[in-house]
Amino acid sequence: MKGTNLGEFEELVLLTIAALLNEAYSVAICDELAGHTGRSVKLGVVHAVLNRLEEKGLVKSELGEATKARGGKRKRFYQLTMQGKAALVSAKSMRDQLWARIPLLVWEKM
């Protein structure tokens, strides 16, 4: 299946969603990512990724309460699904395993 592997940016977005807890909506994610990675993140790109993640079933979303800001438009809040969590965990564990295989010597030589 195409959707099982996470791309780098997808992983970052997933992590941000997890980190933001209940405040994870597109603009906030965008800001958070930009703050932490130091690169400029385009809203359109984040939107596309969120959409893709939702299609893969890694996140779910629901509309929040209407507020006066944003021209009266509701925010769409994202949450990780079980699959999303599993994907993050498996990605992390895969990395950890790889990290564990690196002998300390290698670092010292460099």
Partner: peptide, 30 residues
């Protein structure tokens, strides 16, 4: 925000997406 651009988004966008999309655009605009 320019209303015609807003209407343009509302015209082409899927009904499910249109609200938070225009909302995001509006937030960025502000």
């Amino acid at each position: 925000p320019p209303s015609w651009a807003q209407r343009f988004v509302e015209w082409y966008c899927k009904p499910g997406l249109v609200e938070d999309l225009t909302g995001d655009l509006h937030e960025c605009f502000e």
